[in-house]
Design a protein around this nucleic acid. Structure first.
Lengths: 209, 209
DNA sequence: CCACTAGTGCGACAGCTGTTGCATTAGGAT
DNA sequence: ATCCTAATGCAACAGCTGTCGCACTAGTGG
């Protein structure tokens, strides 16, 4: 067995007990993660909280990284919709507010996930994919703004604009660990919109499909 | 002994052997960190590489977090100067380029430090302080730009501007783990300058000293 | 040169982590 | 209802991690 156990794809026997134990374990992971951060995430602790034997957790998820991958994938499966307030600035502000809220809550599941994804290569890949999906979903905000005529050029790099708007929030709260600024979501969104209006993200050299 | 051993302040006996062992251990930490990332950082590995007994490392630095604090503090002690190219956009571009270079190198000591600072509360504090110092140093870029008349208002929040300029680089490379974009440093800097020129970071409500 | 002692090396130890073989249970199929 | 077997529980095990007492080395001060 060189490849991983079918943690995310319980094909063989999808029946009651297996699914039940998987749910118990994933719930335990989320609980441990939000309570004690990624530090408190132990195979032992998860097994105990889930009421499952250690060996079972080791066999199905191999290590902490495997648990995280499963949790991240589960998070990606829940449907999520970007805000729609009627204006680009409003949308980006709402998005930033949502991000800030998820990061400020103590304890923050989102922060724990980011921190933990540095532990495991698999978890990092899973989270990279999750984030790519979310940002791809958000590109519709930019397209709507272009259709409304809020942006000067049709050649606006949506991803750059979204990154410029949201990155400061993550940077302040995750990396710099600064105290949350209630005005940051709006100010960062506004700054990105102003830069976009000035053509900062116009993408004339690369036609992205 | 409830408080930590005087790892950073070897007051009692600053003599040859103690200082020599500290240097050996810190060198070993940096080497292990850059080679294997924060995953490969083990007390055992550091001790072996430094040619020192495990018990010595445990006694003086207590755990991996203690090692990281000492390394981060050492990194903060080396003097660093923000770029001075003659224009705000040039300065921010150069700064972003410097950041991107430090993050793109494989293996990246900077990324390993960030990842590792999620492990330990002490390391997180040390790095928060280091980053605050660096950003405070960079505020001179904004002040120079104001004096040159590149910015419309004297009330420009330097920290917000700097964050807006640099955050996307960190976000792309550290959190989103995207492939490095050689144009990102300049584009992000340009976007921040445009936003600042449009008054996005004017701070009229709070007079910061 | 000698005495003092902080700091280090050494080895043994407990506790924890992850693995493995075997017995048992429970979901699925005939 | 009964059998089949995947999945789990159980327990013993090796390996690693962190701690501690003791001996000794090497700065430090006289």
């Amino acid at each position: 067995m060189t490849d991983h156990p079918p943690a995310t794809t319980p094909d063989r026997r999808p029946g009651g007990r297996t699914a039940r134990i998987r749910a118990q374990v994933l719930d335990a992971v989320r609980a441990e993660l939000t309570e004690g951060g990624h530090e408190g995430l132990t195979m032992e602790g998860v097994a105990t909280r889930a009421g499952v034997h250690r060996a079972t957790v080791y066999r199905r998820w191999r290590d902490v990284g495997g648990l995280l991958v499963d949790v991240i994938d589960a998070a990606g499966e829940m449907d999520w919709q970007p805000p729609d307030t009627g204006s680009l600035r409003g949308d980006l502000t709402a998005l930033n507010q949502e991000i800030q809220d998820s990061l400020v809550v103590q304890p923050s599941f989102a922060v724990a996930l980011m921190a933990a994804s540095f532990h495991s290569e698999q978890a990092a890949r899973a989270q990279k994919k999750l984030w790519a999906d979310r940002y791809a979903q958000c590109e519709v905000l930019v397209h709507r703004a272009v259709e409304r005529g809020e942006l000067p050029s049709r050649h606006t790099d949506a991803h750059s604009l979204l990154t410029a708007a949201t990155a400061p929030v993550y940077h302040q709260l995750v990396l710099l660990r600064a105290d949350p600024d209630p005005q940051l979501p709006e100010r960062s969104a506004a700054a990105a919109v102003l830069a976009a209006a000035a053509g900062a993200f116009s993408d004339l050299r690369e036609e992205r499909a």
